[in-house]
Design a protein around this nucleic acid. Structure first.
Lengths: 211, 211
DNA sequence: CTGAAATTTTGACATGGATCAAGGAAGCTC
DNA sequence: GAGCTTCCTTGATCCATGTCAAAATTTCAG
């Protein structure tokens, strides 16, 4: 009923439209969901982190491309037994509902970003989200310097933010020039003043710090 | 435990950040979810149609503004009893999960639209989605003429599509000039050739017709 | 019917981000 | 450590969409 599968970074896990005869939980690594138009325009529509769920009960066709961003380990369940489990243990459905509602909120926050934010605000928002996630894990004080590693290429950032990679590069440079962030190399980012970064996101300044 | 509330068109049902001490199901009418930035930029992030659900188990703060687009009737449940119900009857959680997954898919389709589509493609996509929904209800043949009423102002369209209302107006005029749609008055739209409209959405041409 | 308010269209112009193009930096392989 | 290859930056230019302004149309109360 349950088995593990591994994928290398960059490998496609499922193609949009393919039949998906299992559901899975991410054990390790990061995978991304994306949609691609016929002419190649691409938009990332979601991120799967460890403990996130892939696939949905009652549908076999995958609606998006799923790509391994890092090496990924999945814990897969065949569809039949899994749906059995859902019917018999209410907590599974409830837990899945919680997670799906969180993903929906994240997607809707992203709608505002894609629909209404400027390029600079988009970059600042992405950096703030990543920084916040890492800071939460590290139990770090938000008020002082904080350094983290950007886990994605400029192109991946562009695909998330609905921009071109040139614009991403320019805006990152601009934020650096303006002292909002510092860079060591291309990927290591330091935030000297978190509230300064938050000002640049365009979001309400009084919003709660923790997500 | 259960009671009804009514709202007039245009009225705000909940403000973002307010405490929401009930959950509800839409009985009649259409409500929209939106987020507004401090400087007034606004993005619609979802639509509630009859049978859709408002609020979520385990959280009291509303994450979005909820506005009645038409007169709306809600069937409200107090939070405590509802969460009881969820724990005891597995089908409720499962049904809610189904609905949430559908909303998530819709939101992700919208991410592609907002992030990567041109203004013309956005308008065509919106018209196609509305037309499809009405056609599905009317059991109408997709190949021939089809007329429907646009249930929103140009400004509301702009808020959905991440455009300005001037751009919406111009692109609607352009689609009319090019014969993709016809207009009787401002709000009544005729689609002479549905596949022609679909070509303008930028979506895969071979995608299934029925959502 | 009449006038005021709301909605939509249209025009002129500005601009943010895309596009096209070139070159630089950083990893990897051998 | 030389030479690929991938990733990133920067510059020049263009164009889709935003902005500002005004007029046209529709709606609706009285």
């Amino acid at each position: 009923m349950k088995y593990y599968r591994e994928f290398d970074a960059g490998q496609t896990i499922v193609w949009s439209g393919d039949e998906l005869n299992f559901v899975a939980s991410v054990v390790d690594g990061i995978a991304s969901l994306s949609q691609t138009m016929e002419d190649g325009r691409r938009q990332m529509v979601g991120l799967l982190l460890p403990s996130d769920f892939l696939g949905r009960p009652g549908r076999t066709a995958a609606p998006y491309d799923v790509t391994a961003s890092t090496n990924v380990t999945l814990c897969c369940f065949r569809r039949g037994p899994f749906e059995q489990l859902m019917n018999t243990t209410p907590h599974v459905a409830q837990r899945l509902l919680e997670m799906t509602l969180d993903e929906l909120d994240a997607a809707r926050e992203w709608l505002l970003l894609l629909g209404r934010k400027t390029a600079r605000e988009k970059i600042a928002s992405l950096l703030a989200i990543i920084a916040r996630r890492k800071a939460a894990i590290a139990q770090h004080d938000h008020e002082s310097d904080f350094t983290f590693d950007l886990p994605m290429t400029r192109e991946a950032m562009a695909d998330y933010l609905g921009l071109t990679l040139e614009t991403v590069s320019r805006q990152v440079s601009a934020l650096k020039r303006d002292g909002v962030i510092k860079l060591q190399g291309k990927r290591e980012v330091t935030i000297p003043d978190f509230s300064r970064l938050l000002d640049e996101t365009g979001d309400d300044s009084d919003g709660g710090f923790l997500v």
